[in-house]
């Protein structure tokens, strides 16, 4: 008689177990990647952009919040994700459009717009608009989405199971009454 509810409950337990496990594994691995990887991240403002006579980028100097200046070199694979003042984001790699990369970096230097550089061995692998928050806060948003949507799902499925059980009870009662 209450098979529906059992079904819903089993489903919920399965889903919850899978989601929780996977989210936990994911967060753990994400944190360990961040720790273990060769890459490190630096946020700050552009203080100098060095180009050769053709306008090709050679070096970039970034000042972090403590005022320390770090210089980076580029590789053709260096990724860019930079916005102009209007907020239009330009995404490309150095090899695709080196002059635009230089122009955007100079634009950031003039506007004191902060950027985030991922780098390894003094070579920048990606230069993007400064991240709104830290990695952990973004994971918080990700977790919030999963938590709210699954809670809504489960609440709805539970509600349906409950309703079906009540209706089944009512049907049996009425049938008995008829006999």
């Amino acid at each position: 008689m209450n098979t529906k509810l059992t079904g819903a409950k089993t489903g919920i337990i399965l889903f919850m177990a899978i989601t929780t496990t996977l989210t936990a594994i994911f967060i753990a691995s994400e944190v360990s990647i961040a720790k273990a990887s060769e890459e490190s991240i630096l946020s700050g403002i552009v203080v100098g952009v060095e180009t050769d006579s053709n306008g090709k980028l050679i070096r970039l100097a970034v000042s972090d919040s403590s005022g320390q200046i770090t210089t980076f070199e580029f590789s053709p694979k260096t990724q860019f994700g930079l916005e102009n003042q209007a907020g239009d984001r330009w995404i490309s790699s150095l090899a695709e459009n080196p002059s635009e990369a230089a122009r955007r970096l100079n634009d950031h230097r003039k506007r004191f717009a902060p950027i985030t550089v991922s780098h390894a061995n003094g070579i920048a692998s990606s230069i993007v608009e400064r991240q709104e928050g830290k990695l952990e806060t973004n994971l918080g948003y990700l977790f919030a989405v999963f938590a709210t949507t699954w809670i809504l799902f489960f609440a709805y499925v539970l509600y349906m199971g409950q309703k079906q059980r009540v209706l089944q009870y009512e049907i049996t009662r009425l049938k008995n009454q008829l006999e």
């Binding site: 399965l14 899978i18 989601t19 996977l22 989210t23 991240q131 990695l135 973004n138 989405v145 999963f146």
Partner: peptide
Amino acid sequence: TALMGCALYLIFIWVPTETNQGAIQRILYF
């Protein structure tokens, strides 16, 4: 349930993190 498990595995473990948005981009798969 089985398919959802597979999808969650792909979303969280298999697919690499997108570089422009980071981890948050995984919301898209949902």
